[in-house]
Amino acid sequence: MDGGWLQLTYITSLPDGFFHTCVAVLGLLLGSFLNVVVYRLPLMIHNEGQLTGHGFNLSLPASHCPACKHPLKYWQNIPVLSWLLLRGKCHYCAAAISIRYPLTEAGCAAMFLGLSFLFTMPLSLLSALILFWFLLALSLIDLATYLLPDRLTLPLLWAGLLVHSISGEATLQDALYGAAAGYMALWLLYWGVKIVSGKEGMGYGDFKLLAALGAWVGWQMLPYLCILAALAGIVFALVRMGVYKMSEQIPFGPCLAMAGALIYISQESNIVWLMFR
């Protein structure tokens, strides 16, 4: 434990420019993996016991073109750079490669870079990188598929409890109560809406995500988090109806993720204060 802490301390004592560059490069790499998770994890869930039984998971098969199935070489799989070199097309069949891939990688790198300025202590930075990567992954999956997979929400919950057993603004007791209260709050709302209207207002994944966020920010912050998420949901719905003329169900996961991220930054960062302390 002491050796790992010394290594983290050494890394953060590197010259500022080099350190922030390293964090940004890490964000690029994890952004590339994020693309894999966002694309493959919903397929693994929908085809449980079928595709997974034939070597389909987050590591198999190897990266390949979705159109021609040709495996990619290392230079064709470099985050952002490969997309630019290939001009957004497959080297083998010239099929278009979605701009979503480089945008996700660049977005993850920018997010990591920003966090490296906000969190100056080694453990707090590492914790923030873990939390925000999971929140970005869950948000992108929910936007695309209306799913919040247990394979992401449950590890995020346990990670929050583990982090606050070591350090953080919230105590382990507050984090534990936050996880329980977060789940119960939306569970009760879900059943209240269903009993009154006969409709399901949200999915069980939302309960688990709020439970995970409760573990990260503590039970005291849950009212602020829910209010922020509700406001974000209203804005999202209005924009969607105004721009796309769509009034169907909206994914609530990104709204919860955004609210949780803002409150966590305000709690844990020594630089930003957002009235939630």
Rank of each mutant, 00 (worst) to 15 (best):
G198T: 11
M275P: 14
G55N: 12
T52H: 05
A144K: 11
I263F: 12
L85E: 04
S59P: 00
L30I: 14
D16I: 10
L156N: 12
C226V: 11
A229G: 09
L86I: 01
A261L: 12
G4A: 13
I11K: 04
L85C: 12
T120P: 13
I263H: 14
P149H: 02
A110G: 14
C65F: 08
G31T: 08
P42Y: 02
A67Y: 09
L152R: 08
L231R: 06
S247L: 06
Y39A: 09
I263V: 15
L156R: 09
A257G: 11
L225D: 03
L157D: 03
T171K: 00
G242H: 15
Q76M: 04
R87Y: 03
F19V: 13
F207P: 03
G114W: 04
Y264T: 11
L81I: 07
M121T: 13
A229P: 13
Q7G: 15
L129F: 03
L186N: 03
G31V: 07
G88R: 00
F56E: 04
V38I: 11
S247A: 12
Y264R: 11
G4E: 06
V25H: 01
L162M: 10
S63Y: 10
G107L: 08
L162E: 01
I141T: 00
L81D: 01
D206E: 06
W219T: 05
L60C: 01
L186E: 05
V36Q: 07
K245M: 10
I141E: 00
